[in-house]
């Protein structure tokens, strides 16, 4: 039990429970399956991206370019699909493949030229996004195919609420669940997952332990790109149009959610569990404000305060721990 208090995840979970209680007291609609299903659907986009960001952060890097990668991947995919046709599998595969390819470019630049990942991905964000806007002329794509629209509206569980209005669990969160499962297996049951933690913990020791640093870099950034490609398709499923400028600019919000969940920017630290809690916290704050009838203008204020307090508390605890250790050494 005592061990639990060491993890930021525990505090985030506690805040979520308290917040949920408070919101439920003010509006009982919060704790209904209908609202939960809604939340899952609207936060799938953030949820998928956050897992990619988690992998990059654990490996000791950072990726800023994933919103541009998502936009390029889904735009190209839907452009081709609208002209030549396709189905849901080809759309997901193609978008994921383009995303992974763009991620691979990031990895190659970061690995071979030893350029800090934050600089590389800021540069590639501008390159990818700039080129896409030039080639697309900034025009949005409408008139998604009929089968695409039908897939996005599919419910895997259909229920009826007490007022007689049907609702259900959309198929979209299932994509997120599949990603979570894959990420879980990679992080916990494969050598690859160990390697990512080792790389973030200490690059030199990971290398001497025998991990292939190039392969790890290539995997982490192309996995981020792959998930960005899938998240891009999810965004289009929800909005039923492809916009060139709807995603770029949100990269720091995603990183904020992952960091809330306890991942460290210095690498080697971070759990899937924590990232899911971070996304949940962001989702619940947004949803709670609506249900408590607080103007959505306050959303950023609340998220900002939560981030500052949460990173502040955990940094302060670390500082106190360091002090304690230092005094022991002096004695």
């Amino acid at each position: 039990m005592r061990r639990l208090w060491k993890y930021q995840e525990t505090y985030v979970a506690l805040v979520i429970v308290l917040l949920s209680c408070a919101i439920t007291l003010l509006n009982p609609n919060f704790l209904t399956l209908e609202n939960l299903f809604d939340l899952l659907k609207s936060y799938t986009f953030l949820g998928i991206l956050s897992i990619g960001v988690l992998f990059v952060l654990i490996s000791g890097g950072i990726d800023i370019s994933f919103t541009a990668v998502a936009t390029v991947a889904v735009y190209t995919t839907m452009y081709v699909t609208l002209q030549h046709g396709g189905n849901i599998a080809t759309v997901l595969l193609m978008s994921a493949a383009i995303g992974a390819g763009l991620g691979l470019i990031n990895a190659v630049i970061i690995h071979f030229f030893n350029i800090p990942s934050i600089i590389t991905t800021i540069a590639t964000l501008n390159v990818y996004y700039g080129l896409l806007t030039v080639f697309s002329g900034g025009t949005w794509l409408y008139n998604m195919p009929e089968w695409f629209r039908r897939f996005a509206e599919t419910n895997v569980i259909s229920l009826v609420n007490p007022d007689g209005v049907p609702y259900g669990l959309s198929v979209i969160p299932l994509i997120w669940f599949a990603v979570i499962l894959a990420a879980w297996v990679i992080l916990h049951y494969t050598m690859l997952g160990r390697g990512i933690y080792a790389l973030g913990g200490n690059l030199a020791s990971a290398q001497r332990t025998g991990f292939n640093i190039l392969a790890l870099h290539l995997f982490v950034y192309s996995f981020m790109g792959l998930l960005a490609g899938i998240a891009g398709v999810v965004e289009v499923m929800l909005a039923q149009r492809v916009a060139t400028n709807s995603m770029v600019g949100k990269e720091l919000d995603v990183i904020a959610a992952v960091v809330l969940g306890g991942a460290s920017l210095t690498g080697g630290v971070g759990t899937l569990w924590g990232t899911l809690l971070g996304v949940a916290l962001v989702g619940i704050i947004g949803n709670g404000l609506t249900l408590m009838r607080i103007s959505s203008y306050w959303y950023n204020v609340f998220i900002g305060l939560v981030i500052i307090v949460s990173v502040g508390v955990s940094a302060y605890r670390r500082k106190l721990q360091r002090r304690r250790k230092m005094s022991v050494e002096v004695e």
């Binding site: 306050w298 998220i303 900002g304 981030i307 990173v311 502040g312």
Partner: peptide
Amino acid sequence: VEVSPILATLGTMILVKGV
């Protein structure tokens, strides 16, 4: 408080924009 600069300023960025 010794928060890493990127996190601290990410938090203030979101808060200040909110205000």
